[in-house]
Amino acid sequence: MNKVYITSANTIIGTGWDAEQNCHKILPQQYEPLLQSVPTRNMDRISKIALAAARSTLEARGITVSKDTPNNYGILFGTQFSALDSIHNFDMEALKKGALAVNPGLFPNTVLNAPACQASIHCRFAGPVYTVCSGPLSTLDALGIGYNLIRSGVTSMVLAGGADEAEPLHCAMQNNKKEKGEAAGFLLLESADTIHCGTPLAEIAGYASCALHQKQRTTLSFTLADMITTAVKSGGISARDIACLSLYAWLPANESERLLADLYTELKLNGTREAIKTDWMGSGGIVQANKIIGSKHKALWCLVNADEDKAAVLIIKRL
């Protein structure tokens, strides 16, 4: 099994404020400058912010992949909603003006894998291109699948992460009172073989993901503790070594805090803990991971994502 390193990271976090939607929005000036030389006519916003994040992550590592070089590099694009807004807008146009009035140039935006493919086309990644829709777990599951693809030697490098938008349709679909936020980000994951220069920022040391059926939901902290134990074990470490526990859950803030406290006690931890309050849609995982990379605290982090019917855990060692 290969060790899996994080060698570059960039996450665009919305700095605009939309009071009506109660939401931190990604502003055009945060992604447009990152798309220079890319033909973006007819490209929808979700593809643009995803591509901007992917390009800047590669750039930070100093990697440019040429068009004709064969490679097996993969893309793992986690997203709760992907291009749902583009699909809906395309359909509304057809309903308002008739099916013949649509612009064929916009149709490619209406497939859910479009943002991931734009990243593959413009970053020249020629391996597997996965779009991972796991609701609020989307980006964490994308990181977990990417970790396993490298660990098992299926590919040698992946861009894993994702993006989500918070347009009125998405906010209506979320139907909660939480403050919302838009984020788009990727981690560059590599095996020891491909790291020729530079020092890795972190190592991914374990991952678990599962569905939660009725019974498990009533004992959620036990189930999550079990998952964490399994995940750390696969990396050959102990749950006791976890120094920072971060939870991103679908629950209201106070219930999220309670679940985090239960989990902390369950695992007999001593370090710090944090419950993410903002609703980042599917981007919660990449926001959590971004925090680790931004931190100087060289420690073992445990990221937990929970939705009402599924949960995922990722273990990251900041180097």
Binding site: N42, L100, V102, N103, P104, G105, P108
Partner: peptide
Amino acid sequence: SLRALEILAAIEN
């Protein structure tokens, strides 16, 4: 080719 289709659709409409 997609841009050519866009022209065709716009002219038709």
